[in-house]
Simulated assay, not measured.
Amino acid sequence: MKASIGKTALAAVLALGAAGAASAGVTVNYVDSDKFADVPFAPWERKEVLDELARYFAELGKSLPAGQDLTVDVTDIDLAGREYPTSRGTRDLRVLQGGADWPIIELRYALSANGQVIRSGTAKLSDMNYLDRASRLSDNDSLRYEKRMIEEWFDKTILQKKS
């Protein structure tokens, strides 16, 4: 399963990258995604979440300067809230309480320009106050807290914008 999710996510990212700037691109790999701390249990929900996060990385990648590429290896995901099973065939219920259920994403990254790595490292993205902060993302976006963390990391680490 992990290989098919990774390949599907990679294909989605490559397709999106082709639609964006021709010389800038983002590749997202999910490393042992079946061992992630907290993503949906149902394979179709898991694929949906991982594909959506890969698309978001690709969207952010459109702001990379021409000639730069970003490779991200996601090594763990713990989504905001806690998931509770519901009846068969329906989406599980994710409850957000703002306690010890904040989102965490662990990753490795390499930013390259013209084939040369210009910046690389590891990061552990987390937001203990995820419910207490405003977001520009829609309340209807189930991954808004994770996306906000990714965007803040991308701006600070990859684009090196000042806060």
Results as ranks from 00 to 15, higher is better:
33 S>I: 11
120 S>F: 10
101 D>F: 07
124 K>P: 03
134 A>V: 14
87 S>V: 15
6 G>M: 01
74 V>Y: 01
74 V>C: 05
40 P>W: 06
82 R>Y: 09
24 A>C: 03
69 D>P: 00
59 E>L: 14
114 N>A: 01
41 F>L: 12
65 P>Y: 04
97 Q>K: 15
42 A>M: 02
1 M>I: 00
13 V>A: 15
38 D>R: 12
130 Y>I: 14
159 L>C: 05
53 L>K: 06
124 K>D: 00
7 K>P: 00
30 Y>K: 07
47 K>E: 09
161 K>W: 07
92 D>Q: 10
46 R>W: 01
111 L>R: 03
154 F>C: 07
27 T>Y: 01
101 D>R: 04
128 M>L: 06
21 A>R: 12
92 D>A: 13
77 I>T: 12
20 G>R: 08
46 R>P: 00
148 R>P: 04
79 L>G: 05
14 L>Q: 11
96 L>T: 10
71 T>E: 05
36 F>K: 10
127 D>C: 09
117 V>R: 05
14 L>F: 01
39 V>E: 05
93 L>F: 15
56 Y>N: 01
135 S>V: 12
28 V>L: 13
142 S>L: 12
101 D>H: 13
125 L>M: 14
61 G>I: 02
145 Y>R: 10
62 K>G: 12
115 G>M: 09
107 L>F: 04
93 L>G: 03
19 A>R: 11
111 L>Y: 02
126 S>W: 00
81 G>R: 15
147 K>R: 06
1 M>K: 06
145 Y>S: 02
130 Y>E: 12
80 A>C: 13
23 S>P: 01
20 G>I: 00
154 F>D: 02
14 L>H: 10
6 G>A: 12
6 G>H: 04
74 V>W: 05
149 M>N: 02
77 I>S: 15
43 P>H: 00
128 M>D: 13
150 I>N: 06
41 F>H: 12
